[in-house]
C-alpha cells in the first residue's frame, strides 16, 4: 500500500525579518494571514491557498510561496 500525497502551495513568512505591518493581512482575499501577537505574520490554518498576493505586496519581501507535500 502506498501513502497518497497532494502538493499544496502555502505562504511562508520569515518571522525574523517580518515587521508586522499587516499588509499581507489587508490584501489576503481569504483572510488567511494573521499578525501573531503583534510580532509577525503567519498563515492561518488551512485557509492559505498560496495565491501569492501577500508575497507580491509585502513591502520587505519576507513572504515566499512554498510547495509542500501533504498526506491525503
Amino acid at each position: 500500500m502506498t501513502d497518497k500525497t497532494k502538493k499544496r502551495r502555502l505562504a511562508v513568512v520569515n518571522a525574523d525579518s517580518c515587521v508586522a505591518c499587516g499588509t499581507c493581512f489587508a490584501v489576503c482575499p481569504f483572510e488567511a494571514m494573521e499578525i501573531y501577537k503583534g510580532c509577525y505574520a503567519r498563515p492561518v490554518g488551512e485557509r492559505c491557498v498560496g495565491c501569492g498576493i501577500c508575497e507580491r505586496n509585502c513591502p520587505i519581501g519576507c513572504i515566499s510561496i512554498k510547495i509542500r507535500e501533504e498526506a491525503v
Binding site: 515587521v19 508586522a20 505591518c21 499587516g22 499588509t23 501577537k37 503583534g38 510580532c39 505586496n57 509585502c58 513591502p59 520587505i60
Partner: peptide
C-alpha cells in the same frame, strides 16, 4: 512598494517592540 512606509513607521516599530516585549 505601496506600504514601504510601514516597514519603518515609528509607531509600527514602537508597537511591534511593545508586543514583542509583552
Amino acid at each position: 512598494k505601496p506600504r514601504t512606509w510601514c516597514s519603518f513607521c515609528p509607531m509600527g516599530t514602537m508597537t511591534q517592540g511593545i508586543c514583542k516585549f509583552k
